[in-house]
Amino acid sequence: MKQRIEELLLSTGREGMASLLAEMDEMGFYTAPCSTQYHLANKGGLAEHSLNVYQIMDKLHALLYPEISHDSVIICALLHDLGKAGQYGKPGYIPNMLKGRGKNAEPCQSTAKPYTSNPELLYVDHEVRSTQIAGRHIELTEEENWAILMHNGMYGTFRYQIQGKETPLYLMLHMADMWASRVVETEEKADGEA
C-alpha cells in the first residue's frame, strides 16, 4: 500500500511532495487505523481506506467529470484523512486498553472499540489537520483545499458551510469516501467474519 500511495502522489509532480511523503512516513500514516471502532479500525486501516477512496474516486472522475485534473483526484483521495494519523509527533488514535480483570490479569486491547482518540493531542477536526499538514509541504489548489476540508459533508462539523457551495471535486470525494467506508469496507469486514 505504501509503495502505491507514494507512486501516485509523486506522479502529480507537485513541488514539496517528497517532504510530505517523509512526514507521512514519520507520523505513522501507513500503520494508523482509520477509525476508533467503525471502518478499518486496525493497523494500516488509514492507508487502506485512502487507497479505497482513490480507486472509487478515479472511477467517478472518468465517468462523471473528466474535466477535473487527475492530480486533484489523487491528492484529495489520498490526503483527505491525513489528519487522522495525528500531528505534532502525537498519533491521532491510540490503542484502547482495557484494565485486566482478576488478580494477575494483564490489560488488553478492546475488541469492540480497538482505538480511542489520543487525549494528549488537542482536538482539532481531522479535515483541518489534513489541510494544515498537506499545505505545509505542497500547494493545494482552492478546489482541493475545499474538497478536503468539506469531505464529510452533512456528517461533518462544516455541514452548514457546505450547503449550496458543493463543487464537482468535493462531490466526488464525498461520494467516494462514503462508498468506501459504508459499502466497500463494510463488505470487507463481513467477508472477514464469515
Rank of each mutant, 00 (worst) to 15 (best):
S11N: 01
L20A: 02
S50Y: 07
A47G: 13
N145R: 12
S69R: 13
H137S: 06
G28P: 09
Y93P: 00
A105V: 10
E139R: 13
T36A: 06
I138L: 07
Q37F: 06
S11R: 00
A112W: 09
A41N: 06
M154L: 13
Y155M: 09
N118G: 03
L63W: 10
A22S: 14
R182T: 09
D191T: 08
G153N: 11
H174Q: 13
L121K: 01
I5S: 04
G89V: 07
A41S: 15
Y155F: 06
E166C: 02
L40P: 03
T36M: 01
L64I: 15
Y38C: 03
N118P: 11
H137D: 04
I68N: 01
M57P: 14
E144V: 05
F158V: 04
N145Y: 14
M97T: 01
L8T: 11
A32D: 00
N152K: 15
G100N: 14
E144G: 06
M24C: 05
Y65Q: 12
H137K: 04
A18H: 07
Y93A: 01
G13T: 08
Q55S: 14
T131P: 05
G16F: 08
Y160P: 01
V183T: 13
T12F: 09
L10E: 04
G100V: 12
A41V: 03
L10Y: 03
G83Y: 06
G92Y: 00
N96C: 06
I5Y: 06
H174A: 08
P119G: 01
T131R: 04
Y54V: 09
E23V: 11
R182S: 06
L78A: 12
L21N: 09
E6R: 06
E48L: 14
Q109C: 04
I133S: 01
L60C: 14
T31H: 06
L98G: 05
I148W: 13
Q37H: 14
N152C: 11
R136L: 05
D71T: 13
E144D: 10
D58R: 11
A41G: 07
Q132E: 15
E166G: 02
P95L: 08
H151Y: 07
Y93W: 02
L64G: 14
C34A: 14
V124C: 00
R101L: 07
E188T: 01
L46C: 07
C108P: 01
M178R: 06
E106S: 15
Y155I: 02
M178V: 07
K90R: 12
S72A: 11
R136K: 14
R182W: 03
N104A: 10
P107I: 05
L8A: 10
A112G: 12
A47E: 10
S110M: 10
L122R: 00
G45Y: 10
Q163Y: 02
L98I: 13
L21C: 12
E193H: 03
T12G: 13
A47W: 11
I68E: 07
A32P: 00
E185M: 11
E142Q: 08
Y88F: 10
S35Q: 01
M17N: 09
L82G: 13
H39C: 05
E187S: 04
D25A: 14
L51I: 15
E67F: 02
E144K: 05
E166L: 03
M27G: 15
P107M: 09
I162P: 04
A85R: 00
Y54D: 10
L122E: 00
L78E: 11
H39V: 09
H80D: 13
Y160D: 07
N118D: 02
R14E: 02
Q87R: 02
R182E: 08
G28V: 01
L10H: 04
Q87E: 04
